[in-house]
């Protein structure tokens, strides 16, 4: 019989480092293959690779919490541990983009760059997916005999914030309105 959630039931490596490392590995493979495959000269496969590793990387970034939570939750990962594990692909991608941005912008601009809608939308979507993953894990835990409340404020707020961010930054005016708000912030803060 499967056991219910017991905090800290497995070692830090098994309950956090393993799920987080696996997320990082999958992201790295997708990023590496997408970045370099086109240079190998297999045009017939290139489109398929673009879908699996190009678009797939973005989709994986958002869906990563579903996988990370299912691996971390029942190994006893604490709240912040499973949340972080789910955020690993996004954080890796963010660091990669910031590294490139730092070659063009000042440190202050680079920090502000991280607040751009592409990053914020993904951050909030990952947060929303973490909320979904948490609820799924709680339902599974309940079925395994765990004693807990499934629908609490925190995961529901995470889901709602993700939807709100998606609307504000991508759907409202096709993302253009938010972009100009972001630009206004830049004009107010920096000497361009």
């Amino acid at each position: 019989m499967k056991t219910s959630y017991q905090p800290g039931s497995q070692s830090f490596w098994m309950r956090f480092a393993f799920p987080a490392g696996l997320m990082l590995l999958i992201w790295l493979i997708q990023r590496f293959v997408y970045t370099y495959f086109w240079q190998l000269g297999f045009p017939a496969l290139q489109e398929a690779v673009a879908w699996v590793c190009g678009l797939g990387e973005r989709i994986f970034m958002v869906l990563a919490p579903l996988l990370a939570y299912s691996l971390a939750y029942f190994r006893g990962a604490r709240g912040w541990e499973r949340l972080t594990a789910g955020f690993v692909p996004f954080l890796a991608s963010l660091l990669f983009e910031l590294y490139k941005a730092a070659g063009v912008f000042s440190p202050g601009e680079t920090a502000y760059y991280a607040l751009g809608s592409p990053f914020l939308v993904f951050a909030f979507l990952v947060l929303a997916m973490s909320g979904v993953a948490e609820i799924i894990c709680r339902i599974r835990n309940l079925r395994r005999g765990g004693q807990l409340r499934v629908w609490t404020l925190l995961p529901l707020s995470a889901i709602l914030s993700g939807l709100a961010a998606l609307f504000l930054m991508m759907i409202w005016g096709g993302g253009v309105h938010w972009f100009y708000i972001y630009q206004s912030g830049y004009l107010a803060l920096f000497d361009f």
């Binding site: 290139q46 592409p118 991508m170 096709g174």
Partner: peptide, 19 residues
């Protein structure tokens, strides 16, 4: 030949509105 369907989904291109 060097392009693919999801070039536009590169994070640096998202600002160009090409989703």
């Amino acid at each position: 030949p060097e392009s693919d369907a999801w070039i536009s989904f590169n994070l640096n291109h998202i600002y160009c509105g090409l989703l």
